[in-house]
Design a binder for these strands. Sequence first.
DNA 1: TATGAATGAGAGTTCATTCAT
DNA 2: TATGAATGAACTCTCATTCAT
Lengths: 205, 205, 205, 205
Amino acid sequence: MMVRKPKQQRAKVTVDTIIQAGFIAVSQSGIHGATTRQIAEISGIGVGSLYEYFENKEAIYQAMNQHFVNDIVDMLRKLTPNLVRLNLHDVVELLLNSFSDLLRRDGGIYLKYVRYSRYSPLIETALMEFAMRYAMHNPKFLRLENMATINYICITGGIFSVIRHLSTPTPNVTFDQLLEGLSRMTTSYFDAEFARLDHVEKPNL
Amino acid sequence: MMVRKPKQQRAKVTVDTIIQAGFIAVSQSGIHGATTRQIAEISGIGVGSLYEYFENKEAIYQAMNQHFVNDIVDMLRKLTPNLVRLNLHDVVELLLNSFSDLLRRDGGIYLKYVRYSRYSPLIETALMEFAMRYAMHNPKFLRLENMATINYICITGGIFSVIRHLSTPTPNVTFDQLLEGLSRMTTSYFDAEFARLDHVEKPNL
Amino acid sequence: MMVRKPKQQRAKVTVDTIIQAGFIAVSQSGIHGATTRQIAEISGIGVGSLYEYFENKEAIYQAMNQHFVNDIVDMLRKLTPNLVRLNLHDVVELLLNSFSDLLRRDGGIYLKYVRYSRYSPLIETALMEFAMRYAMHNPKFLRLENMATINYICITGGIFSVIRHLSTPTPNVTFDQLLEGLSRMTTSYFDAEFARLDHVEKPNL
Amino acid sequence: MMVRKPKQQRAKVTVDTIIQAGFIAVSQSGIHGATTRQIAEISGIGVGSLYEYFENKEAIYQAMNQHFVNDIVDMLRKLTPNLVRLNLHDVVELLLNSFSDLLRRDGGIYLKYVRYSRYSPLIETALMEFAMRYAMHNPKFLRLENMATINYICITGGIFSVIRHLSTPTPNVTFDQLLEGLSRMTTSYFDAEFARLDHVEKPNL
DNA sequence: TATGAATGAGAGTTCATTCAT
DNA sequence: TATGAATGAACTCTCATTCAT
């Protein structure tokens, strides 16, 4: 809901500056502690100028969410060519490590933000898309009929475990332990589903 | 916290009414959209009366959280005697079904609320306590050294998957599928860890 | 002002208790920091009961002022027989010492109160009345035609100097110095007026 | 104190307007009857704007007091060169006349205000400084050892008598009578102290 | 285009007063 | 008679939004 399309380069830069400032403000003061004044100050522009680029505060938050989702989707896109060649264990590890890096970059502004953000369906879509690509490179996965459920569980479980872990000041499990655990969980889950498949398909062998 | 101790039955009821109104208000307007006036209105009392029972708005939110956590912990306590006698698959199923029921009761006010609440360490503690009791009834679990990590993953994964599912208007996986999936995930994960344990302990057999 | 005439002894006692509590509350919280709740609490009675004896908060303050003024006037009445026999220097000293004692009794609740109270015309009247009595015992004062002005200055100056001094945490003049000063000021002022009188009456002597 | 430094002329004017409105509000409703809305209304600005210039209501009151004290001190500074050349009688007269003018200007808003203001130590300091300058121009005063006490009495007595007189609707002494009285009181007091000094210094002459 | 002073609705909170018990 | 829970008007203060410059 941009008031004015930022055709010029300068305008585009300003918009990005505001969005970045938004993340910083939210990470400093929480999503409802952050004020437009604060965002303007961090941006280095006047409060009034905020409204040249965004209709209102909510629009800034929407743009922030967009930005966040785009970053995740981009990351996923760039990773995909490598990921499809890896086994499940390494996929989970690389994926969650990358996700963790994303959340912690720039002083962890995304991490603070993510607690307030709604889990976007766009991320869902992107992950599903990736899962399809992976299955196409590793056709045995296509045999699983309950892929949707398995994905749902592994993706949700993986993402929230990582977010919660990074948000906990003194977790009693290390991040490496968590990652190894999630990798094992995923592989064993899939293995079990494959085994069940075999058992069903070839019951009398 | 409480300005006045609700000694009388009447006062106790009023306090509960306010807390309930708090959940309704939050579910209607979000945690920072909810106002003291709104809570008072829903409670059917005057604004001033709110402050007869609570020091400030924050104290209401704290009492709400307390209430929520107590409900979960109570549920867990009551379930424990039955749960310890069940196999892992059924434990997960019963636990998450009960959790789901809790979140959806009273028109799902807990479900709306839970998005804004912080995952309480008291819930964590209660779940860990349960895990210990279960392991004592099923001693083979005591052999697993990485119980902490496994618990972390299964608990976080289970809870957040259920919350997210209940919060999604039109999920593309049914709740029963989710539950069956989480049960399988948990059992297969534990089985894999046991297998790994056997492999390590008896490498040359 | 009183809602109900306190005919019974018990009621009279309660009224006094409330007034005392009022002074304590004001000395603790200032005149607009003091609340009806606070006064009720200090009185040891319920808030509602306050309104059995006083129409509203303002009425309590009025009664307090009345009480304060009465105490001063009573003090003055009791002192008068002795005072009229003393010379001016000792009159000032005894008067202000007694006034100071009154302000400081009961932990100085009157002293805190007096900062907020309005200088009552009743005190004025009482002091004027005393001045008249003194003049009748010491007829030479009757010759002064500008007695009103002199009284005004000496009384105002004396009272406010003492109040201000008692209210100053670390005054750079001792109370005894102040009293001696005020006594001298008064005597010298009167002496000068008498001298002026003589000079006018007997210009050529 | 000030949230924003009034660099621009416009802002400076607004700050002054608010302070003036504060005096008017206090003179209308008393210091705790005056509200931020009232001050804003009198200023002709919005409530929010108040907080652009002052951190809170208390800050406005502090600025008001500052303003008042500054006006008195300025008056005293400007008067000093003339005052030091006058005799005591005329000093008192000019000083108190000027003080009276200050209190009564702008419809007497200072006069109403002064009842609620605390007697500032800055005024004290300024008066003491003046007393020193006067003594240096009139060295005989330096011989008095109890100058502190005498000043205390004459200053307090003078100031409070004038304030009280101006605040009394129908005083039974005219202002001119009061001023003449205070002048005589001061001169006779000082004369008496000088006489005492001579008597002590030259006892056997 | 960019600004930030000005705005005022609305937030949380207080407290003199009432009235059912 | 005595109570204190309940009340709501009114307080101080905030902040998203506007608009004259």
